[in-house]
């Protein structure tokens, strides 16, 4: 940490210690020490964008009266946290637990980073260990970047490369859906840190009693590879009605692969991929 950053961090802590956890001005407030801070995880191992972890920040009001409490999270720019602040009303004796996801964008150097959580006079530092992704026969699991044209809330890009290809788990964060609805095409992309040589893509779309393939499943898509001349289509699927489809093509070197979707069955509203594997 350079001097400027250290100075900023110190300044933040001073502000936090003097201004956070103030009682609601409309109520008689207890001392700041009435709020206790704890964080569930002592250390947090993660391996990148799609293998992050979760801290659970707990704020407990041990004072006799309700307060509005704040917790500030600070982390190096190398880590991604969707939130850096938690503010909440705390009745006397009440504990609020807030999960905070921690991930590392593609290309984050491996090593140990620190997430600090500060509330009033309390500060908890959690080491976050970023490790290289484990080698896998499934090239999708070792992508350094997973991205898409858009994503629907609850259906993140990481859901389609999490190793869970069970369509019955659709709706529980284990698949990807685009965020647009009835707008085509959409795309879903894997980028590797260096050249890979894929020859086979297996795509699982939805197919369960609640989400039958005929109504919600993906129908038409292309498999494309990045080349020096741009994206090149190496396989195309049209009129699909199956839950799982494997496309094969001549093995070749590439740094990225994407699925371009053109239509879905039935409602024809969204792209739904439960799992994508590449070998």
């Amino acid at each position: 940490m350079d001097r400027t950053r250290a100075h900023r961090a110190a300044a933040l802590l001073v502000i936090a210690a003097t201004a956070l956890c103030g009682p609601a001005p409309a109520t008689a407030g207890p001392s700041r020490s009435g709020v206790r801070l704890s964080v569930d995880r002592a250390t947090l191992p993660i391996t990148g964008q799609c293998n992050g972890g979760e801290l659970r920040v707990r704020l407990t009001n041990r004072g006799p009266a309700p307060v509005y409490a704040d917790a500030v999270l600070t982390a190096p720019a190398a880590l991604h946290l969707p939130r850096r602040l938690i503010s909440t009303w705390l009745p006397a004796g009440y504990t609020r637990t807030v999960p905070v996801a921690v991930s590392a964008p593609a290309g984050t150097p491996t090593g140990t980073y620190t997430v600090s959580v500060t509330s009033g006079e309390h500060r908890v530092a959690v080491p976050v260990v970023v490790s290289p992704a484990r080698p896998s026969a499934d090239l999708a699991r070792s992508a350094v970047r997973v991205s898409a044209s858009s994503s629907r809330t609850g259906f993140p890009v990481c859901g389609a490369v999490d190793g869970d290809a069970d369509p019955a788990h659709w709706g529980h964060g284990t698949g990807w859906a685009d965020g647009t609805g009835r707008q085509w095409p959409d795309w879903y992309e894997l980028t590797w840190s260096g050249p890979r040589q894929p020859a086979r893509v297996t795509l699982t779309t939805v197919g369960s009693a609640q989400f039958p393939t005929a109504r919600y499943g993906l129908r038409d898509w292309d498999v494309q590879l990045a080349t020096a001349a741009g994206w090149r289509t190496v396989a195309a699927v049209r009129g699909n009605t199956a839950v799982t489809v494997t496309s094969t093509f001549p093995r070749q070197r590439t740094g990225a692969l994407r699925i371009v979707t053109h239509a879905a069955n039935g409602l024809n509203d969204q792209s739904r991929i439960v799992e994508l594997s590449v070998s």
């Binding site: 939130r83 938690i86 503010s87 807030v98």
Partner: peptide, 16 residues
């Protein structure tokens, strides 16, 4: 929009 807007809104900072 940052991904904070995809979190379930239940705390004061997110409502704000």
């Amino acid at each position: 929009l940052p991904d904070a807007f995809e979190l379930p809104v239940d705390t004061l900072d997110l409502y704000r």
